[in-house]
Design a protein around this nucleic acid. Structure first.
Lengths: 191, 191
DNA sequence: CCTACCGATCGGTAGG
DNA sequence: CCTACCGATCGGTAGG
């Protein structure tokens, strides 16, 4: 079979890819249809509105990060070990779901107030997991007593989220090396 | 005088602000005109095309960072001192030109290939200044021998560029504190 | 998923 | 900087 009908999941996935590349407002429904081999108007048999597509991609990004954090916290090791798991999980999400993540990071601000504030909540929740692990590491003496959990979490996440902008899988660093480099950098400034 | 005629500089500045908020494709010429108190079509007495506005804002961002790096390198202290000057300069540019910087960081990819590749060149040049200072610090023994200048520069710039996404001037950290925190984090992972 | 279409809006121009 | 307008494209719908 050379070509079959597209599923709703195909539409969402392709939307994620195009939103990541051209931006939400830079992608028309006709662009999206062309990429899928159908007309823009035919997309409306799968979805109700263009914004629905953005909501779905961004929600998936939020979910991927939160689920990754949950898995990392189930490992129940030292704070350093959990921080490593958090970083490794984030790297994995960014590299395995580049389009979703880019759309999540760069296009969520195009959502209406309601949807956007839900995304911000989810982002705060995720950041809170990093903060809490760092706080615990301070309590246990793994990290220095005057480390700032809030700022440290922001800095670590800044490095992690920037991966989307420069990391190329065909480059010198594999994902273990990049995880290691970010973890080492984090621990160095926490010690 | 309650209102006078807008200058070309007003148009470019307001475009920068709106591109930063709504994105290039999310801002129409009529939106921009409304913000300036005139019709969209009237903008064309100041400029030739919408893309001209994006080019000008993004070029200004590139220029601000390169000039900041130039000033930092004129200080001619130790590598650590120059790195501190680079970081302080970057923080200053981000906080004093938020709209230009946000447009530079997030909307440059909407430029056509020619303009975009010029921006990428300028960005590489700027990143190279960070790399070179770090390399010098390794040579002088200020930084550890197995530090990686390329990765370190990327991590420091990741933290610096993310400022645009979370820093609020009315928050707890003033710009000296944020410069200090980033510098400390950088030096910790370089030592 | 297509045909045929809708009103609204887009970037931009001519002429004043 | 406005008036008056252009062709193209936008998100979306009705009906099959």
């Amino acid at each position: 079979m050379v070509s079959t009908r597209n599923t709703r999941a195909d539409v969402v996935a392709t939307a994620g890819r195009m939103f990541a590349e051209k931006g939400y407002h830079g992608t028309s429904m006709r662009d999206l249809g062309r990429e899928l081999g159908l007309l823009g108007s035919s997309l409306y048999s799968h979805i109700d509105s263009k914004e629905d597509l953005l909501v779905e991609v961004v929600d998936e990004g939020a979910r991927l990060f939160l689920e990754s954090a949950q898995r990392a916290m189930e490992s129940s090791g030292t704070a350093s070990e959990q921080l490593r798991a958090l970083i490794g999980g984030h790297v994995e999400v960014v590299l395995d779901h580049q389009d979703v993540v880019r759309t999540y990071l760069n296009e969520a601000r195009m959502l209406d107030d309601d949807h956007r504030s839900r995304v911000v909540e989810s982002r705060d929740l995720y950041e809170g997991v990093f903060r809490d692990v760092i706080s615990r590491g301070i309590s246990t003496g793994e990290f220095k007593r005057d480390a700032d959990p809030k700022i440290s979490a922001i800095f670590i996440l800044s490095i992690l989220n920037a991966l989307e902008r420069w990391y190329r899988p065909e480059g010198e660093l594999d994902r273990n090396a990049v995880t290691e480099a970010i973890y080492e950098s984090a621990v160095a400034s926490l010690s």
